[in-house]
Amino acid sequence: CLLALGAARLRGTGDDPVRLVLAGAALSGLMNAGSSVLLLSDARAADEIRFWTIGSVAGRGTEQLSAVLPVLLLGLVLALLSGPALTALSLGDDVATGLGHKPRRARALAVTAVALLVGAATAIAGPVSFVGLVVPFAARALVGPDLRRLLVVSALLGPAVVLLADVASRLVARPYEMPLGVMTALCGAPVLVAVVRSHRMPAL
């Protein structure tokens, strides 16, 4: 997370979210390549991890959830606490400061919450891509720009989207099952491209 943020801010790029997405994608590709090199030395491990690296909720139960539940709850609490400050920041740093918020601290709290939530979710289901990018825009269309309501709706809408994608992945290629991460990428990538082309991606 820190590497992605650092790469996105090189050469004074500031808080451009498009650069952040590109930096994250580049680092993800680099780390996936490193993982592939490590797995080449163990064919059995490669077979076992191949399906997980695409993302799946198959076989994930309460045992796996309980292992990361404290991290998920902590991330959710931090996200909800950061809601008022982030709403103020959407109006600009000067306005947020005038309302008594500290922009640097608010952003650090939000980044910590995101790192905890995304890390815990990935530990359970693998890298199910584009959910965290598409769901907030769908939630914004439903409840508007107030980040306090947006966070709550996103927390409910995200699992619903994953569940629908999982059901669809079991139906489109019957009798086989398409990996969940592939399904979310097929649906989410066009949405992200459309959002970027419409210039509606908010500043961080």
Results as ranks from 00 to 15, higher is better:
residue 1 C to F: 15
residue 3 L to W: 10
residue 5 L to P: 00
residue 6 G to Y: 13
residue 6 G to R: 10
residue 10 L to D: 05
residue 14 G to V: 02
residue 18 V to S: 12
residue 20 L to K: 05
residue 21 V to W: 14
residue 23 A to K: 01
residue 23 A to M: 05
residue 24 G to W: 11
residue 25 A to I: 04
residue 29 G to E: 12
residue 30 L to S: 01
residue 30 L to A: 11
residue 34 G to L: 14
residue 35 S to Y: 11
residue 36 S to M: 09
residue 37 V to I: 13
residue 41 S to T: 05
residue 50 R to Q: 13
residue 53 T to A: 09
residue 55 G to I: 04
residue 59 G to M: 10
residue 59 G to Q: 10
residue 62 T to M: 15
residue 62 T to Y: 10
residue 62 T to H: 07
residue 63 E to L: 10
residue 64 Q to V: 02
residue 66 S to N: 05
residue 67 A to Y: 07
residue 69 L to I: 00
residue 74 L to G: 06
residue 75 G to V: 04
residue 75 G to C: 06
residue 78 L to I: 01
residue 79 A to D: 08
residue 82 S to V: 03
residue 82 S to W: 09
residue 84 P to L: 11
residue 87 T to E: 15
residue 88 A to D: 08
residue 93 D to E: 15
residue 94 D to A: 12
residue 94 D to G: 03
residue 95 V to R: 14
residue 96 A to H: 08
residue 96 A to W: 10
residue 97 T to C: 14
residue 98 G to S: 07
residue 101 H to K: 00
residue 102 K to H: 15
residue 104 R to P: 02
residue 105 R to L: 15
residue 105 R to H: 13
residue 108 A to Q: 15
residue 108 A to E: 13
residue 109 L to M: 14
residue 110 A to F: 13
residue 110 A to W: 11
residue 112 T to M: 15
residue 114 V to E: 09
residue 115 A to F: 09
residue 115 A to N: 02
residue 116 L to C: 12
residue 117 L to P: 02
residue 119 G to M: 05
residue 124 I to T: 07
residue 124 I to K: 05
residue 124 I to Y: 05
residue 125 A to L: 09
residue 127 P to V: 08
residue 128 V to M: 07
residue 130 F to G: 03
residue 133 L to N: 02
residue 133 L to T: 01
residue 137 F to N: 12
residue 137 F to L: 14
residue 138 A to W: 13
residue 140 R to L: 11
residue 141 A to G: 05
residue 143 V to H: 12
residue 144 G to K: 06
residue 145 P to F: 13
residue 146 D to G: 08
residue 147 L to G: 00
residue 147 L to N: 11
residue 147 L to K: 02
residue 155 A to Q: 03
residue 156 L to E: 09
residue 157 L to W: 07
residue 158 G to L: 09
residue 158 G to P: 10
residue 159 P to F: 11
residue 160 A to V: 11
residue 161 V to M: 14
residue 163 L to H: 08
residue 165 A to C: 14
residue 165 A to S: 14
residue 165 A to H: 04
residue 166 D to S: 06
residue 167 V to S: 07
residue 167 V to Q: 12
residue 169 S to Q: 06
residue 169 S to G: 13
residue 170 R to S: 03
residue 174 R to K: 08
residue 174 R to D: 10
residue 175 P to M: 06
residue 176 Y to L: 11
residue 177 E to T: 02
residue 177 E to M: 01
residue 178 M to G: 00
residue 180 L to M: 03
residue 180 L to W: 03
residue 183 M to I: 06
residue 183 M to P: 01
residue 185 A to Y: 03
residue 185 A to E: 02
residue 186 L to W: 04
residue 187 C to I: 09
residue 187 C to T: 03
residue 188 G to A: 06
residue 188 G to H: 09
residue 188 G to L: 09
residue 190 P to W: 10
residue 190 P to I: 10
residue 193 V to G: 01
residue 194 A to C: 10
residue 194 A to H: 05
residue 195 V to M: 12
residue 197 R to I: 01
residue 198 S to Y: 00
residue 200 R to M: 06
residue 201 M to C: 07
residue 201 M to A: 13
